[in-house]
Amino acid sequence: MKKLPVCLVLILSVLLTCCQRPEEPMPPSSLLPKEKMVQLLVELHLNESRVEAAHLRADSSQALFNQLQKDMLWRHEVSDSVFWQSYRYYAVHNKDLDELYGIVLDSLAARKYELGVR
C-alpha cells in the first residue's frame, strides 16, 4: 500500500517536469505586433458590449459575436489562427499581456469618456 503513494508522487513529478513551459518560448512566425493586438482586443471587447446590449438569447448572442469577430479579423486581414496564436504567446508572457490590457483598458475608458457614458 505504501508503494502507491510513492508511485503517484513519481508520476506527478515526471508529468510536472514534462509540462513546464520553457523560460522563453519562441514567438510564432506570424506574431502580431502589440499595437495590432491592442486594436483587435479593443474592437473585440466593443463587439462583446454590442452583443450584450442586444439582449439576445444565448445561442443568437454567440452567433452574432462569432460573426462580428469573423468580420473584424477579415477587415484587419488577420486569420483567426494568427490572432489566437499571438494571444497565446502574449498570455504566456504575463507581463506582455498585462501591458496590452493596460492599453486596451485605457483605450476603452477614453472611448467611454468621449461618448459621455458613465
Rank of each mutant, 00 (worst) to 15 (best):
M1S: 06
M1F: 04
K2Y: 10
K2Q: 11
K3H: 15
K3G: 05
V6F: 15
V6Y: 06
C7K: 08
C7R: 02
C7I: 07
C7N: 06
L8H: 07
V9Y: 13
L12F: 08
S13G: 14
V14L: 15
L16N: 04
L16R: 10
T17N: 01
C18E: 15
C18V: 03
C18W: 06
C19G: 15
Q20F: 01
P22T: 13
P22M: 07
P22I: 04
P25R: 02
P27D: 02
P27M: 10
P28Y: 11
L32D: 00
E35I: 03
K36C: 07
K36T: 03
M37I: 02
M37N: 01
M37D: 03
V38P: 00
V38G: 00
Q39T: 05
L40F: 08
L41H: 08
L41G: 08
E43C: 07
E43Q: 08
H45I: 01
H45G: 02
L46E: 03
N47G: 09
N47F: 08
S49K: 14
V51I: 02
E52V: 11
E52F: 04
E52D: 04
E52N: 08
A53S: 15
A53C: 12
A53T: 13
A54F: 03
A54Y: 01
A54P: 00
A54T: 09
H55C: 14
L56K: 05
R57F: 05
S60E: 12
S60C: 10
S60Q: 02
S60K: 10
Q62W: 14
Q62G: 05
Q62I: 11
A63V: 14
A63I: 14
A63Q: 05
A63N: 10
A63F: 04
N66T: 13
N66S: 15
Q67W: 01
Q67T: 13
Q67D: 11
L68D: 06
L68G: 06
Q69R: 15
Q69E: 15
K70F: 10
D71S: 14
D71N: 14
D71T: 15
M72L: 07
M72V: 09
M72T: 10
L73Q: 01
W74H: 13
H76K: 11
H76A: 12
V78E: 06
V78F: 09
S79C: 05
D80S: 11
S81K: 15
S81L: 15
V82Y: 00
V82W: 02
F83R: 07
W84P: 00
S86G: 11
S86K: 04
Y89V: 01
A91V: 07
A91Q: 05
A91P: 03
K95G: 02
K95F: 12
L97A: 07
L97T: 02
D98Q: 13
D98R: 13
E99L: 01
L100R: 13
Y101F: 15
G102F: 13
G102R: 08
I103G: 02
I103R: 12
V104Q: 06
V104I: 12
V104C: 05
L105M: 09
L105V: 10
S107W: 05
S107L: 12
Y113L: 05
L115T: 10
V117G: 08
